[in-house]
Amino acid sequence: MNALRRFLTSSLGQKTLMALTGLGLVGFLVAHLAGNLTLFQGAEALNEYEHKLESFGPLLYVAEAGLGLLFVVHIGLALRVTARNREARGVGYRQRTHMGESTVASRSMLISGLVLLLFLLVHLIDFRVPKAMGSDSVEDMGVAVIDRLTSPIGFLIYMVGLTAMGLHLRHAFASAFQTLGVSHPRYSLWLRNAGFGLAVVLFVGFASIPIYLMFQS
């Protein structure tokens, strides 16, 4: 069998791809947060940032396509691997005591992922789709975003999405490194704490924006 194909159809190969795409998505989240933080300087600053992004022209579409691919691969494999894992257990236990590093976050990866996906769809329908259709309402993206985030229902959806993101990352970051074979008593604990730290920083970072905006208005 072709070596690459064998790798990609093996459980380890699929987990490796999940880890790589997952870490790619973490990179995207960090960049996205950096962009959003411009809102602290007002709607105008976000618009400026957005125009800079747009000045990349077609390259932006390439980047967006790449990002889309990361999501599709990550989610596709997540569903496949999770289905296989359920099948591998078969009949479940009547009683189960969780041990090791099993946490609420690690046990709810599929749920946090799916909530995140749902949030993502709402998010895209809010901001990306109208733009693609050339709608006027997003001429001023900064104002549109502020409107959304400070409306009670918009804020709630945003916070639910963020909570799912935080939970997902709490387990995902260190897990990805273990999957990629990066493990050593010297720094495994450090990686786990870094994953926790990353989840907190991203959650607080994203959450600070609507809260700041609400105090402002």
Partner: peptide
């Protein structure tokens, strides 16, 4: 690893319950 997959075992999600 190939045989492990063929036998129908699951994939690791790094909860470390095994350890």
């Amino acid at each position: 690893v190939d045989q492990m997959d063929k036998e129908g075992f699951g994939a690791c999600t790094n909860h470390y319950e095994c350890m």
